[in-house]
């Protein structure tokens, strides 16, 4: 029916215009993943460094266990899940935005 070409059609036909849309999507997704990577790497990477630079923490007892041991065993896991959950939500939102962009509901 409609003769107007949406960006979706341009994507499907791989026109130069469609290419542009695709590159932009990939760049955005990659940007989000890299951001999450840097944040996560900062979190996980700083844990050994902090324990290395602060050997005095070893003398702090929590529940009868030296604090560094406890810090490595328990708290990182919930943080991992939180990172994953936030990322998955943002990535899905990016995809929703892309869908709206290339195929606007009129």
């Amino acid at each position: 029916m409609s003769t107007r070409r949406t960006p979706r059609d341009e994507l499907a036909e791989a026109t130069p215009h469609g290419r542009l849309y695709l590159r932009r999507l990939i760049r955005r997704q990659l940007g989000l993943s890299m951001l999450a990577l840097v944040a996560f790497g900062g979190f996980l990477g700083s844990l050994p460094l902090a324990l290395y630079l602060l050997p005095g923490l070893q003398d702090v007892d929590v529940l009868g266990v030296p604090l560094p041991v406890l810090l490595v065993v328990l708290p990182p896991y919930p943080v991992f899940v939180a990172f994953g959950w936030l990322y998955a939500r943002r990535a899905a939102a990016l995809e929703d935005a892309f869908r709206e962009l290339v195929e606007p509901v009129e």
Binding site: R8, L11, A12, A14, I26
Partner: peptide, 17 residues
């Protein structure tokens, strides 16, 4: 890679791409 492959990797579902 032709765009078809990049599309297959990255295009969101629901667009028929």
């Amino acid at each position: 890679p032709p765009d078809a492959e990049l599309l297959a990797l990255h295009a969101p579902e629901g667009l028929g791409l």
